[in-house]
Design a protein around this nucleic acid. Sequence first.
DNA 1: AATGGCAGCAACCGCCTACAA
DNA 2: CTTGTAGGCGGTTGCTGCCAT
Length: 382
Amino acid sequence: MVKSQCFEKVGLKKGPWTPEEDQKLLDYIEEHGHGSWRALPAKAGLQRCGKSCRLRWTNYLRPDIKRGKFNLQEEQSIIRLHALLGNRWSAIATHLPKRTDNEIKNYWNTHLKKRLDKMGIDPVTHKPKADSFGSGSGHSKGAASLSHMAQWESARLEAEARLVRESKLTVPNPPKNVLGSAVSAQVSNKGSAAPTARPQCLDVLKAWQGVVFSMFSVGSRDSLESPTSTLNFSENALAMIPLIGVQKNPTTTLAFATNNATLNRGATASEFDRGNQLECFEKLKETAQVTRNLDSSMAIHDISPYASDHNAWFVDSSANENAPMGNIIDGFSEILVCNSLDPNPTCSGENINDCYAGSLEDNYWNSLLNLVDASPTGSSVF
DNA sequence: AATGGCAGCAACCGCCTACAA
DNA sequence: CTTGTAGGCGGTTGCTGCCAT
């Protein structure tokens, strides 16, 4: 269809940017915001295409980006997120404040990928190259569980990243960046949200986890082996939605999302069928309407950016910080791991995280990260 | 000092999706 | 519904500087 007109145009400069060009771009955006990137070069007096200007701004000139060496924590985050999200650099970047996707991608390709490779870990699958993790009969169940966990966590993080982006696009009073002036309204895209303000959408996702958890047969964790193998999506579970969303706390943030691509991923996807998803979705919509009637301040959003085979709704409210549901579970992955491990016998069942501290997931990541953390002087792999 | 190899990174390119006309 | 445009994303390229020979 439409080719990349930008780089086909003759007479436009390519290659490295000069300090003068940088200054022109900075000055223009500081005064006018970027507006239409296509129109910007002419207005700013630059012999560049709009796309080049946008890339230069987002990857280099933007004032809210941090440059320089990645610290250990950032490295760990990248490795972990890459294991969960794959090469979705923009999604990874949303979890690393002030770092651009391009920078993360470069760092991965030039540093981390090689480091993992030298350690005998496949940088694509994040498993040992010999695949001892999954091939041994004793570990197969754990590996499968971990795989399911990773799929769900991946979906969760992806949705979270998307919501973070959306929240930044719609933030009513974007943080004033160091350029000051009207630029902030225009440049409040990724990476520029106030670092101290916790995105509300994260609570939404937490609530979503709570809803999913409550849909399962809570009393019998044996049914929670994995989301794609033994999901028990009963009518009782569906009936719990309004209990949580309306009766328990009318102002609780209630989130629900069905992600067919994720839920149906894997060989045993049929056990969570489309019919159940749609039915559940419809019930949630009803709940959302009821909830809105109860609380006029409630807002209902249709997260349309989801792909066509995704249905996602969330009911949002301003009072969600103390939502009891948020304490039900913090991280759906723990549920998935729980079943493959013996739960803490002292667990009261009120806080899933306490019950299953030291999960397989933790062990896996800790071991992985410990490997990465190994001193170059003390390890033969470096 | 010259040069060849390599690593790091900025920038380019092509594809994709969302959206408006 | 179709088409064109803008912007986003991920893979790749190529320039630059460093280091070994």
